[in-house]
């Protein structure tokens, strides 16, 4: 992206609530932002270390529940609860990271799915802690000094800040020595190991950061929708994140954000365009077409296009 385009984009993003007055569209953008944080987090594992984590909804859900339970049950203010959510999710990431030490590829995938499955079942059955299927309604909105961030405009800026923060964290990580180690891991693990890259250390690091960011996304979700129920652990959330990352372009930084925006807006656009019977069928078909024509993802395809035009 050229410098001018980037400045323009930033300006648009910063002033969004003022020219996008429709609260429904603002709602879609906020959800896209939350999923943007989630997609960036999944991209760390999937795109950069090459590990396919299909249990990412578990970290999202752990973040959401932690935040909700602390603010509802123990009357914590939102900000420390959010930090706790990130910490707890990161801890879960550490556990998975250590487990992954022994496993690669398909096996890692299955452990992550199983982990998410077990956490989901716990949230449904452990009534005393999570209130089970009844869910946790009335999660409070965050407060900044005297202002309550209940309004959509205020929450938009919170989410925007979170997205920027996540992007920065990922960018710094990826461009550092650690990031190079990730890439080495992804491309050729035995070779990386032979050159002295501490594979286990980096995998765990990636898992911890990835999970922590997902926990942040979960906390943001909980305080926005103000209702948390075991459905957050649904596999469909993980699938959605995967779609966003891979279709957007895994291994790039902009890809997951593009994917998040596109695939949050798409179902809503379909909701507006077609009647309820055809929505999801159209979604599936569109997804198929997208992958068929742009197998590497949108952002890499755009870059290729620009490269071709330049040459």
């Amino acid at each position: 992206m050229t410098r001018a385009a980037r400045v323009l984009g930033a300006l648009l993003a910063l002033t969004l609530p003022f020219w996008l007055q429709n609260p429904y569209y603002l709602h879609v953008v906020i959800m896209a932002g939350i999923f943007g944080v989630l997609s960036l987090s999944l991209n760390l594992l999937l795109g950069y270390t090459g590990q396919l984590s299909l249990g990412h909804a578990a970290f999202f859900g752990i973040g959401a529940y932690t935040s909700a339970l602390l603010t509802l049950g123990l009357a914590w203010p939102v900000w420390p609860a959010m930090l706790a959510a990130v910490a707890l999710a990161a801890l879960a990431g550490w556990v998975i990271g250590r487990l992954a030490l022994k496993l690669r590829g398909a096996y890692f995938v299955l452990v992550t799915i199983s982990f998410a499955g077990v956490v989901s079942l716990v949230s449904v059955n452990w009534m005393e802690l999570t209130n089970g299927p009844l869910g946790l309604p009335g999660v409070p909105a965050p407060e900044l000094g005297p202002w309550s961030l209940r309004t959509k405009t205020a929450y938009y800026y919170l989410v925007l800040a979170a997205v920027a923060l996540s992007y920065l964290v990922c960018a710094r990580l990826v461009r550092s020595r650690i990031g190079r180690a990730f890439l080495a891991l992804r491309e050729n693990e035995p070779l990386a190991e032979s050159v002295g890259v501490d594979v286990t250390h980096y995998l765990v690091l990636a898992a911890v950061v990835s999970a922590g960011l997902a926990g942040l996304g979960g906390s943001l979700y909980a305080h926005y929708t103000r209702f948390v129920s075991p459905e957050v652990f649904l596999f469909t959330y993980t699938v959605t994140m995967v779609i966003m990352v891979v279709a957007g372009g895994k291994g790039t930084l902009a890809g997951p954000l593009v994917g998040a925006l596109l695939f949050t807006a798409l179902p809503e656009a379909l909701r507006l365009a077609t009647s309820w019977q055809w929505q999801m069928l159209a979604y599936g078909v569109l997804l198929l077409l997208l992958v068929y024509f742009l197998p590497r993802g949108i952002v890499p395809a755009l870059r290729e296009l620009r490269g071709r035009r330049a040459s």
Binding site: L52, V242, V246, A247, L281, V285, L287, V291
Partner: peptide, 22 residues
């Protein structure tokens, strides 16, 4: 990559299930 084929199968999954629903 394996992720791309996986995404294709996800699309097939969504399409098939909703077609059955229809």
């Amino acid at each position: 990559s394996i992720d791309t084929t996986m995404l294709v199968m996800i699309g097939v999954w969504i399409a098939m299930q909703n077609a059955e629903l229809l």
